[in-house]
Amino acid sequence: MENYLDQKGRVFNVQKFSIHDGPGIRTIIFLKGCFLRCKWCCNPESQSHEIQQMTVGGVTKTVGEDVTVREMIEKILKDRIYYRRSGGGVTLSGGEMLYQPEFSSALLRACKENGISTAVESTACASFDKIEKCLPYIDYYLMDIKHFNSDKHKQFTGQPNELILENARKIAKSDVELIIRVPVIPTFNDTVEEITDIAKFAKTLDGVKELHLLPYHAFGSDKYKGLGRKYLMEDIVAPASEKMEQLKSAVENCGLKCQIGG
């Protein structure tokens, strides 16, 4: 690629004025394609890299669009004044930004060259060379660790967790600020023991001080129907707030700061 600004990628949404995904006012870029197939995923349209049609509320729309880094950075820069005022910036979400490492790396680089703070929401479930490409341009790495038991991890997400845990150790050694996030999914990982296992592991990672617990919600369920898929978590109810508080204490007992919600 002659100019990294011409690098193409596939995104399916740009959410401006996002105030709960990383510090300050942020623009979130949702990238298409993911390595995992989490049963509770609230963005099922993000999973396949293919451009799809989705029908929600009687309206069919195309999910996914090919764009250049140049086009994206123009959109991003429109809100730079708000990033500066709030200490915010850009967050790459998905899907999984490592599914399109060339594009993600180029887009993050463009942000940094324009003085914009960056965050990624990633599972880190990819070979480390892909992560390495992006690391120099990332300020906050919000990394999902969903379960410490690899078999159960595979059963609910389609992938084992060894690579994820190994990458977590490597990322922790880099300069980025690593924050561990755990989606709390009833029937999967919502016991004190399971959360404690993850927290204990997180505590061993260099520089990790914080763990966020994200309570399960069913807000994506309409979209499964819209994609002609079956929603497998229909019977699951969101965890009660007492439950979340209990899990939060468990995390704090491991010596980490913990917050509920992103």
Binding site: Q15, F17, S18, I19, H20, D21, I28, V56, G57, L214, P215, H217, F219, S221, D222, K223, G261, G262
Partner: peptide, 14 residues
Amino acid sequence: AGYSALFTTLSKSL
């Protein structure tokens, strides 16, 4: 939930 959004773009149930 963990994010803010334009109300009218959300599904009826949400």
